[in-house]
Nucleic acid binder design. Structure first.
Lengths: 229, 229
DNA sequence: CGGTATCCGCAAAGATACTG
DNA sequence: CAGTATCTTTGCGGATACCG
């Protein structure tokens, strides 16, 4: 270990393991299932390969992350959260919830669809809601799938490995609008912004569970009537 | 703002505000009520006055902390969490809960009674339990008081401002033993390690609610039968 | 592809002296 | 008591070179 707080306090000891820069964001990336080194670089713009490598070793040493072989072309492998690593998810959800209260960020910040999905799941976790139907989302070029494992909702990158009970297809902007409840599923489906493959009531229920926390921007600029004149 | 992740992700944006070294520990200290600069130094051994000063300014700027005047001798003042700052408490509780799973720290780490109380409260928060009776704790030279505010349990430094419904007095070691359920209230009271001023059943209920999360040390070395031979 | 290693410039952290 | 100022040390960011 490098720099420690040297306190018995459990918060301090957790921060001794998780408190270095990038560490929690690395765990966020792995919260969407096993990922390869280069996949993670995409979700951590600016990290530098040396730091990512050092952090992963550190987390592996503290039983937060494991390397798993990836039977494919070449001797490649991926990183995966351990059980103890998965236990960090509620903390990340809490941070996302709290972060929703901050003022709107500069528009040039990096954005990924999976981060919005992560925040949506945080909203569901806060409410203690579990969505049972296996759902596949196609947002732009990317595909995700979500399912309730009985206790909480899981979120994974890639196509669903089983036939999903619900399939939604839209742009990232429409996803945001639906999750923030600025537009209804019926309206988005009618306008063609959203394609629903399955029961439309189930789709409505999906966005009732996976609601984006109200942002400070929503509070500051409450939209009434028409928008953008 | 200085170093930012420049991501739209709500977790990253929360970490932009809270992620610097010492920041969450400062909030931990303020979670026990308003504190003066020098009080905080005691709970943050090794921080350096410049860093504490810089962090407090930063947190004040982001509406996590406010300065409040302290009508007393001299022109002194204290720092206090804002509503948004208080909202970070569940995140700290989650970190404490997670930190309990780590292996036992070196024995030369700094220790404070309030950190143990903080972890006990985290255990109660996890279980969703609220303890209504205003309780005063005298541990060694220090006095604390706790109360349920309807939603969650609050923890404060100093003597209770109202007559407490329960008053407990013991050493820090006994507090740990009681909270970890290694010894019962009845046994501790009988041996004189614990003084109960109030109903003994209420005292038992207190330690049922404020249980210390099981540590990795407890799991690794399960005590069976007699202890310390 | 999947990293590790090294170097440099800079910003943040640590330590301590000093001031209102 | 409540900080500010200053100096040193460490960690991070970014680039690039290298290896299985």
């Amino acid at each position: 270990m490098t720099r420690t707080y040297a306190q018995m306090c459990l918060v301090a000891r957790a921060m001794d393991v998780l408190g270095e820069r990038w560490t929690l964001l690395i765990i966020r990336e792995l919260g969407l299932g096993p990922r390869r080194f280069s996949d993670m670089l995409d979700g951590l713009p600016g990290i530098g390969t040396n730091l990512l490598s050092a952090r992963l070793k550190h987390l592996e040493h503290h039983d937060v992350v494991t390397r798993i072989p990836l039977g494919g072309p070449g001797h490649s492998h991926a990183y995966q959260l351990t059980e103890r690593g998965e236990a960090i998810t509620p903390i990340l959800a809490g941070l996302a919830q709290w972060g929703a209260g901050l003022e709107a960020p500069p528009t040039d910040y990096a954005d990924r669809t999976r981060w919005a999905l992560f925040a949506m799941r945080a909203g569901a976790a806060e409410a203690g809601a579990v969505f049972d139907t296996v759902t596949e989302l196609v947002v732009g070029e990317e595909t995700f799938w979500m399912y309730g494992d009985g206790t909480q909702n899981q979120l994974r990158v890639g196509p669903a490995p089983v036939r999903p009970g619900l399939r939604l297809s839209c742009s990232r902007a429409t996803l945001h609008a639906l999750a923030a409840h600025r537009v209804s599923v019926a309206a988005a489906a009618a306008s063609g912004d959203l394609t629903v493959d399955g029961d439309i009531d189930t789709a409505t229920a999906f966005f009732a569970v996976f609601a984006l926390p109200e942002t400070a921007a929503d509070v500051a600029k409450p939209r009434r009537g028409k928008k953008r004149r």
